[in-house]
Design a binder for these strands. Sequence first.
DNA 1: TTCGCTAACCAATGCGCTTTGGATGATTTG
DNA 2: CAAATCATCCAAAGCGCATTGGTTAGCGAA
Lengths: 344, 344
Amino acid sequence: MNLKQLAENLGLSPTTVSRALNDYPEVSEVTRRRVKKAAIQNNYRPNAKAMSLATGRSMVIGHILPLDAKNDIVNPIFSEFIVGASQTYSENGYQLMLSMVPEGTTNQAYRNIASKGSMDGVIVHSPINQDPRVNLLQEIGLPFVLHGRISDEDKNYSWIDVNNKSAFEQATQLLLDLGHQRIAFLNGEEQHHFAQRRRMGFKSAMQSTKTAINPDFQFSEPMTEEYGYRVTKSLLSAPEKVRPSGLLLSSYVIALGARRAIHEAGLQMGKEVSVIIHDDELSYFQNSETVPQFTATRSSVRDAGLQAADMLLKIIKNPDAGPEQRLLECRLTVGSSTGPCISN
Amino acid sequence: MNLKQLAENLGLSPTTVSRALNDYPEVSEVTRRRVKKAAIQNNYRPNAKAMSLATGRSMVIGHILPLDAKNDIVNPIFSEFIVGASQTYSENGYQLMLSMVPEGTTNQAYRNIASKGSMDGVIVHSPINQDPRVNLLQEIGLPFVLHGRISDEDKNYSWIDVNNKSAFEQATQLLLDLGHQRIAFLNGEEQHHFAQRRRMGFKSAMQSTKTAINPDFQFSEPMTEEYGYRVTKSLLSAPEKVRPSGLLLSSYVIALGARRAIHEAGLQMGKEVSVIIHDDELSYFQNSETVPQFTATRSSVRDAGLQAADMLLKIIKNPDAGPEQRLLECRLTVGSSTGPCISN
DNA sequence: TTCGCTAACCAATGCGCTTTGGATGATTTG
DNA sequence: CAAATCATCCAAAGCGCATTGGTTAGCGAA
């Protein structure tokens, strides 16, 4: 059933039917009712392709995800972000398109997307340092919001980001306040800007208290369970007075591995080893205990997705408004994985 | 740059340019070369909407994900499945569209999708028992592949599924062979067919060896870490001779919680408690140890995604070929989380 | 009565592409 | 040498909608 057929059924012109359905004023109330009723009865839905060809808007938002050849780990937080975003989309009649772009073909892929005209805007995930995609998208003129940012004081494009520096500064400070001096930091890959900023926060807190940073306690790898396990195990094999008493972990998944290593070493979190993590509040990892298991800097990635989508739709609706930046602050909540240092 | 402009630039008609680009034979080789070169130089890409309006094919595959209101946990395996699928898509020029359908609006949502004509086919995720979506899609006439199935011997629609029954039968059998009699089974929600079939496999192995199934050891909940922790902790609080000596866990995430409870109880996997899990081989949980940590029935969900996409594209290409079913067998690999029963 | 105005409708065009059904000149065939 | 064939191109229609620019009838005002 298409518009033309529906119009014929009703003895009206396609014009009038179209206007009736889209709430234009040039149609009498009686006719509008009749048209809308018939549309529902006949299960009529406008053809999205025809509509977008006629209007120029596709009502589709793209989410673009770089896919490393050697290390194509799906970011577990990505799916959570998507859930938040898709809530915004469905409320506004938008669809969500997913593009996994293999490393190296970025330029081509983005130009493809833009000139094929199948998306009204995109959200760019996992930016890396010096990410060329921002310039590319600006050049192409495709509305976009970055999840994360690519440099410090960039005000000329829209992004939403967690205040990673502040979060890790606070987390480190808490460990220091608890008396921990030997702090190990298991970060994500520092080609990602968020990881760099976490590193900055860590350094800042350490330096402001004039605590030495042990280079042997610094790590930067993809955030897997195995990474957390392997490194923690190795760290804890040293004598008590030498090994780290505090662990700063960049993700829940790393923490799962670290927790395993700690348990296997016969130690307890919050006693011999204090652990602080960054927690993106993934739904399937949420615990319902009264005292949270991990002391953590928390920030809902689902909410970030929702807000990012909001920002993008706003840009699309009003392209002349300048770019917007949102910095989400974390809550540092104390759980049972931290306690005073007992090995000094 | 559109087709018409490109044609004008070249002094050709749009018809000829279109045919040249799409490798129709009615164009001379010389002209074809010239056209293709100009297309690249001008960064020309055909407008996807116009193309699909003209051809009737949208080159878009939808992935449909039910979103429970009360329990909208994003299945962590979903994103892994998507990575596999999108590999197939990008090789074949398809795009991936994601639809999260809130519970209750399913019927409307699917009809929307179909009549808007924005997708050439869909992959349906997380089917539940008596899922009405299969009938709905067949009635609508939209090509689809089910990830999972909804009943035992359904041969009249296409699906891809892991042989859950056989996997859990084997896993249970291994525990039994190791001397475990008191086996706890932490399953997923049994409104999902895969969970039901796992239950069947478990029962089958228990019954064939005439081992009693303790109803107090049977669970069925959303597969979270907290679930694994809470239930395992409670189970292990019973005296050694009474509590389960073997745990059968429906997912890696559950196992993470169970492992935590086991460690906290001062016990070791493979010694006092044997654990077998089902492992979907999520990339960020893969361990690189020589002996895997968990004894598990393994099946790559990424590969399933790749194959599901393959099947769907085949159906779209050749709609008259009958439905196809693929049953993926698991590998039962022995890790360090299982050992002989020591508490009988 | 005539004019202008408004409410309510419609015909026709265009979005950018594919595809059908020619048209044209060159080449081959009997 | 005329007829048939072929290679190569093009004009125009159509996909399903939104939108521009009418048209018509009915009304009140002058």
